[in-house]
Design a binder for these strands. Structure first.
Length: 430
RNA sequence: GGAGAGAUGGCCGAGCGGCUGAAGGCGGCGGUUUGCUAAACCGUUAUACGCCCUAAAGCGUAUCGAGGGUUCGAAUCCCUCUCUCUCCGCCA
């Protein structure tokens, strides 16, 4: 949620950010108008309440309270009526301002490049040109099915489209990837957390998932619980309604979790393979920092995710998302894209964002610079480190051998306990 | 699922319906004392919003889990909800 005070003081800045995102800045004037009306109603109502409190205090102090109460009752009643009148519009004004503001995306950072589509994202750096393949490269689903480690048909039988069953070394490699990610996160100062995978409506609201993205989430109606679309939600909301001590910052959390998404807007996209699933796994990294350090933290966070790709020796590039592509919560985002030889394309494998104070304001996560200082909102950051399924894909495609087998990257061998995934015997004879 | 208990400031813990934003303690901060530390002593220590406004100070309103009610007046009385804890049952 945007800061209403900022909108009041610098409406042009807010409008500029909204239009850069490809949206409409008209809400700014509407909010300003509502806010003016709200504040005048508030002032009037509060002045009347002050007058009433004055009379009530007279009763308290009077020697004969009953008599004084009797005497002042008519006056108080008349003020009561005025209060009701003066306050009548307040709840509706507050609600409307809140409703408008709740759907306004975060203020873009000035460093975010202009652009109207994904194709305007800017290359920041890469790991060099991807190697020239020495033999025809298979897509991960071809490899996975041939190796007997990815089973899409049975997954469809169980759950419909966009699910996958991992088998044997596929399942074990997936688990090894998770272990590898968590081990590295721990080494880089992240505290590992196992959060709830179902959260309340208010938690979803606090991290900006609601109300805009309600359609994207699975939920249980009876309990009014939502299945997390990312561990960003519980990790970021962990310190909701808290005032942290400055010595606690920055906080760095890492969590492995399954993620659930309806992918309603992605009909027809990535229907094959496990690129886009209703259920996928991810190790998520979250930072809580003070405002002045958050962009420095974004570089660190991105670097942490990037280091995983380097250690896995997967070709990748870092993209700065353009204004149109930066998500609702974020002020700035880097995407990490991994090279997939089977598709001959770079695909997103991590998204690292600085959400500045946008989520912290909704979540009321604050800190005190020193014991006497006023509480300030923290900045929240999140990034995948990394998406597990897509890492599995990248390993399969980049480490495929001419005979259809797959080597396990050296970094993963200690976690996996094996060095190759071989094509099963019966098929090798054909 | 059944039965009971509870929810007060950073924490613990009081609180006959009337200057109670809230005793007391702990912790924190400032100070005195001290060779240093500790102890002791003194003082101080919530948040949001609005008004004023360069700012500070000041003033006002609201807040004792949430929402509603009774009353001139509610942390205190009534209702609803949420959450936590204990016991029983069931169970990965």
């Amino acid at each position: 949620m945007l800061d209403l005070t900022l909108l009041r003081r610098d409406p042009e800045r807010v409008r500029r950010s909204a239009t850069r995102r490809g949206g409409d800045g008209a809400f700014v004037d509407r909010v300003l108008e509502l806010d003016t009306r709200l504040r005048s109603a508030l002032t009037e109502s509060e002045q009347l309440k002050a007058a009433k409190n004055g009379l009530t205090a007279q009763i308290s102090k009077a020697p004969d309270r009953a008599a004084k109460a009797q005497e002042l009752r008519p006056q108080i009643q008349s003020i009561d009526n005025s209060i009701v009148e003066a306050s009548a519009a307040i709840p509706a004004l507050e609600r409307e301002i809140e409703e408008i503001l709740a759907d306004v995306p975060n203020l873009l950072d000035d460093s975010v490049p202009d652009g109207t589509a994904e194709t305007d994202n800017v290359l920041v750096r890469d790991s060099g040109p991807p190697p020239e393949p020495a033999f025809p490269q298979l897509q991960h689903w071809e490899l996975g099915e041939r190796l007997g480690i990815l089973d899409f048909e049975r997954a469809a039988k169980l759950s419909g489209s966009r699910f996958t069953v991992l088998r044997g070394k596929g399942a074990r490699l997936s688990r090894a990837i998770v272990d590898f990610f968590l081990a590295r996160a721990g080494e880089r100062g992240y505290l590992e957390v196992v959060p709830p995978y179902l959260v309340t409506r208010s938690t979803m609201w606090a991290t900006g998932q609601l109300s805009k993205f309600a359609d994207a989430m699975f939920r249980d109606e009876d309990a009014d619980l939502f299945m997390i679309p990312t561990a960003e939600v519980p990790l970021t909301a962990l310190h909701r309604d808290e005032i942290l001590d400055t010595t606690q910052l920055p906080l760095q959390y890492a969590a492995y979790s399954p993620c659930f998404r309806k992918e309603a807007g992605a009909a027809g996209k990535d229907t094959r393979g496990l690129i886009r699933q209703h259920q996928f796994e991810k190790v998520e990294l979250v930072w809580l920092t003070e405002a002045a350090r958050s962009f420095e933290a974004l570089e660190r966070l991105t670097g942490d995710a990037e280091a995983l790709l380097r250690e896995l020796q997967l070709p990748y590039r870092v993209m700065a998302l353009c204004a149109a592509d930066v998500g609702f919560n974020a002020a700035k985002t880097y995407d990490l894209e991994v090279w997939l030889p089977g598709q001959a394309a770079y695909r997103e494998i991590s998204s690292c964002s600085n959400c500045t104070d946008f989520q912290a304001r909704r979540s009321q996560i604050r800190f005190r610079r020193d014991p006497k200082a006023k509480p300030e909102l923290v900045h929240t950051l999140n990034g995948s480190g990394l998406a597990v399924g897509r890492t599995l894909i990248a390993v399969l495609e980049n480490y495929q051998q001419a005979d259809g087998s797959v080597r396990v990257p050296a970094a993963l061998v200690p976690f996996a306990g094996f060095e190759t995934i071989d094509v099963p015997e019966p098929r090798r004879r054909t």
